[in-house]
Amino acid sequence: MSLDRRGFFKLAGLIAAGTAGATALPAIDQGHQAGPEPVPSHALHGKRWAMVVDLAVCRQHPGCHACIDACNTAHNIPQIPDPRHEIKWIWEEPFDNAFPSKKTPFIKPELAAGPVLLLCNHCDNPPCVRVCPTQATWKREDGVVMMDWHRCIGCRYCMAACPYGSRSFNWVDPRPYITHINPDFPTRERGVVEKCDLCQERLAIGKPPLCVEACPYQALTFGDLADEHAPVRKLLDERISIRRKPSLGTEPQVYYLV
């Protein structure tokens, strides 16, 4: 085979490009791992995670923000003074705002006055997941509605679709508004949506969500609804519970004991 100068360079170039491509391939492959992440043996396993909030307990301790503070600190939630740009994972609302369809003029005054803890409902039928054009938000098999801050394009369709106002968008760079950065949890950048992820990082190491652990009065109970002996099931069997906007068919998995 005769090879002139020009042909030689062509061939050499092709070989070089091929080698570079081959070495780059494993890296690309890793980035696209589709299967479930390996779950450590000590992780909490559940078929349908749910949360039960006992509003009666919260009412007995007005001004207690232990769960909110713990969440904000652990998850690097910025404290942005402008309410238009706020980031909220777990927060308080008056009863009428949390349950607009349950409005009644003669409700127990302490019920109306008492705060209601709000967070992502980790719906069984999440509208945010349905509308997301990049699958940056998705529902895990155990019911946790997850969020990939590195895939989100910031179109905010999920915010329009969420009937609970549980999603926040980083309108500005959040980092200057975090007083104490927790190095064990990622901070976010401007232009992406975020929300409560039910402390999936803690579930993975066998711990319940932080808000549950942080409550000094056990107002929050976390567990697997598929397990009939779970404390969440016991509470829901014994007490009257309500959910936010059940008529929309989203099947929220945060239950409130009134």
């Binding site: 509308v131 895939r151 179109c155 905010r156």
Partner: peptide
């Protein structure tokens, strides 16, 4: 107008990389 509304326009092609027929935006 859609592009200027995106929070992360440089990731715009994620709509093609992860095609999602259940999203109307797709």
């Amino acid at each position: 107008f859609i592009v200027v509304d995106l929070g992360q326009p440089q990731r715009m092609l994620n709509i093609l990389f992860h095609p999602t027929p259940h999203s109307i935006l797709f």
